[in-house]
């Protein structure tokens, strides 16, 4: 996924597009992240000013939610479900396989910036578990072959 480099103008436009909206902070942060791939720190004071919040309040929200990144992710993001229904279907073994093959722990990005491995607590695919999501594409009924194929796609 190609993201734009940080631009205060783009950020200002995004913020302006939510003017007058009730509870606009999360929608703004989602849009900022969609544009840049993460929530760049310089965006925080801009959002704070527009919404009459303190910078600390905005920062507090950015850091509270798992979705918001404070730095760019790898070129690919592999989210592996670690919740109970996937555990019951052998998900733990596959999760460990991902860490081993990609050489990163959950929550980390590979040194070459190729892939970020993240845990996700439920994709709602519990009846076709184990499940994962690669760059927004969902895959269920995972086995070693399928997860290896997903990992190969990040190469």
């Amino acid at each position: 996924m190609a993201y734009e480099a940080w631009s205060a103008d783009t950020a200002a436009n995004i913020i302006r597009s939510h003017e007058g909206r009730e509870g606009a902070l999360l929608p703004i942060l989602h849009d900022i992240q969609e544009a840049f791939g993460y929530v760049p720190e310089p965006a925080e004071p801009m959002i704070a000013e527009a919404l009459s919040l303190s910078r600390a309040e905005v920062h507090g929200v950015v850091t509270f939610y798992h979705d918001f990144r404070r730095e760019p992710a790898g070129r690919h993001v592999l989210k592996v479900c670690r919740a109970e229904a996937c555990q019951a279907a052998g998900g733990d073994v596959l999760a460990a396989r991902c860490e081993k093959h990609l050489g990163v722990a959950f929550g980390e990005t590979s040194l070459d910036g190729r892939v970020t491995l993240e845990p996700v607590y439920c994709l709602g695919l519990c009846s076709v578990s184990p499940a994962a999501m690669l760059d927004g594409r969902i895959v269920g009924r995972l086995d070693e072959k399928k997860i290896d194929k997903l990992m190969a796609e990040t190469a």
């Binding site: 999360l26 929608p27 989602h30 509270f64 939610y65 979705d67």
Partner: peptide, 8 residues
């Protein structure tokens, strides 16, 4: 529609 942000 409003979208959450990954907090259980």
């Amino acid at each position: 529609v409003r979208v959450g942000a990954g907090a259980y």
